[in-house]
Simulated assay, not measured.
Amino acid sequence: MIRDDEHKQEYYRALVDKKSEYEGVFYVGVKTTGVFCRPTCPARKPKYENCEFYATSKEALLASFRPCQRCRPLSHPNQVSELVTQLVEAVENNPEKRWKEQDFKALSVDESTARRQFKKRFGMTFVEYARARRMGLALKNIRSGEKIIDTQLASGYDSSSGFRDAFSRIMGASPTLLEDSKVLKAAWLDTRLGPMIAIGDESKLYLLEFVDRRGLELEVERLRKRTKSAIIPGLTEPIQSIEKELTQYFEGTLTEFKTPLFLMGSPFQKSVWEQLIQIPSGETRSYADIAISLGKPTAYRAVAKANGANQLAIVIPCHRVINSNGELGGYGGGLTRKKWLLSHEK
């Protein structure tokens, strides 16, 4: 989300004036309607305080906004193909759907063609688009902090059943069936590098990830299945603690996190994560270095796999592990973030 006041005011003026030169520069999410639009949308203009501005459509989707039916920001006939229009509409007809090969065949659509056209037009594949829409729905009430029941009718469905499906498939329970379950709470945290989701109970933090991380949906599902929990919106002491510590970290006043953590992994994975925590801020290690420190010098590939399975971004600093040749290597939150974090810590 764009937070700079100068840019926000500039974009709002462009929105009011319907300036076509801003097409592709930003999207606007309207909090009162739950939709996001192009700068030239013909609809009545919202008040400034009800607008949120995004650089990409994916950011708007993950922030729980759905495409406007008037300006069709993802399927304007002058900008995209009939195939893209067809698929965007298919997602809106069933936004909680997980797309599989047979679903493309049912629409007589070639999956590779859909992937290529979406990637070219929106910078993400169709499956990534559908996932972002689905995750946006599941994160909607977490982001707003409202009770689930209060957001059902605002989620874009004619009834509450679709919302419950989208939420429960990821978070683990229908909102009316939580009484008999162990409950974890989830909160949306805005950070300098983009929004994150934090999940924890009353004593420990279980998950901290960037909302746009690839595979987040599966991470959340795996967490709630292994802990046999339901996940609902809310705050706990560890979540409040990590929110405060992240603010200090990004301000440059904190280098060591104290929030209590719940490490959910195998003994080997936990041993790797414990080594990561010991890497001083401002320094890096290679996968081989970690393997040697564990007394298993040939296990660097296993170390890399355990590194990628970390569910507590920044706090367990997997971003401080790089390739032996000095290259950054991978990072679930994206290499741009990894580079920024390393630079920030130095």
Results as ranks from 00 to 15, higher is better:
Phe53Ala: 06
Arg3Val: 10
Met264Gln: 08
Gly136Pro: 06
Asn78Arg: 12
Ser324Thr: 13
Pro77Cys: 11
Thr227Glu: 14
Cys51His: 08
Ser203Ile: 00
Tyr206Val: 09
Lys100Asp: 10
Gln311His: 03
Arg143Val: 01
Ser203Met: 09
Arg213Thr: 15
Ser241Ile: 00
Ser266Trp: 02
Ala60Lys: 01
Lys270Ile: 15
Lys182Gly: 00
Ile277Gly: 01
Lys228Leu: 13
Val127Ile: 15
Trp273Tyr: 04
Asp158Ser: 14
Phe122Gly: 01
Gly333Glu: 08
Thr298Arg: 10
Ile170Phe: 02
Ala302Lys: 04
Ile199Gly: 05
Ile231Lys: 06
Lys338His: 11
Leu153Cys: 08
Tyr157Trp: 06
Gly29Gln: 04
Thr247Ile: 13
Ala63Trp: 02
Arg116Met: 14
Glu283Lys: 15
Glu256Met: 09
Leu74Cys: 14
Val211Pro: 04
Ile314Thr: 05
Asp4Leu: 07
Ile231Gly: 07
Lys19Asp: 15
Phe167Tyr: 15
Lys338Glu: 09
Ala166Thr: 09
Gln9Ser: 14
Glu6Leu: 10
Ile239Glu: 02
Leu177Arg: 14
Ser293Gly: 07
Ser161Gln: 11
Lys147Cys: 05
Gln152Gly: 12
Arg226Phe: 03
Leu216His: 03
Glu251Trp: 00
Arg72Met: 14
Val321Arg: 03
Ala138His: 02
Ser20Ala: 15
Val28Cys: 05
Arg133His: 12
Leu184Asn: 01
Ala166Lys: 06
Gln278Leu: 11
